[in-house]
């Protein structure tokens, strides 16, 4: 699959610094949100927010630092597949946690 390097650094030093800034802001935001108790929305809302920020940061790293944005379809496929795998891990783990002590199969 093609991986075109002729564009050089793609978004240049300022662009990379911008992405870096987003990552720093994300980190600070994670800390700041963690100081609030968001359980009034629903139980475990803090975790969800922290994960959302983390996934956003991860997306930026992959798209820009790892050049996935300018890569061919095979690379995109690999990137998407690894998220799919992560989703399997989360889903099948939660399938245990969410079904403990309730419903037909409770114990």
């Amino acid at each position: 699959m093609s991986h075109d390097h002729t564009e050089g650094a793609h978004i240049g030093i300022p662009g990379y610094l911008g992405v870096f800034a987003i990552l720093v802001v994300g980190t600070i935001l994670t800390y700041y949100v963690a100081t609030f108790d968001l359980d009034f929305i629903f139980a475990g809302a803090n975790t969800l927010v922290a994960l959302l920020i983390a996934f956003t940061k991860m997306a930026f790293v992959m798209l820009y630092f790892m050049h996935v944005r300018w890569s061919g379809r095979l690379i995109w496929l690999s990137a998407v597949a690894s998220f799919f795998w992560l989703a399997i891990m989360f889903a099948y783990t939660m399938q245990d946690y969410l079904t403990r002590g309730q419903g037909v199969f409770s114990y």
Partner: peptide, 14 residues
């Protein structure tokens, strides 16, 4: 993988 955890406290459904 959960077949290693049948008696660990994992839910019956899982």
């Amino acid at each position: 993988w959960g077949h290693h955890m049948f008696v660990s406290g994992q839910s019956i459904y899982a």
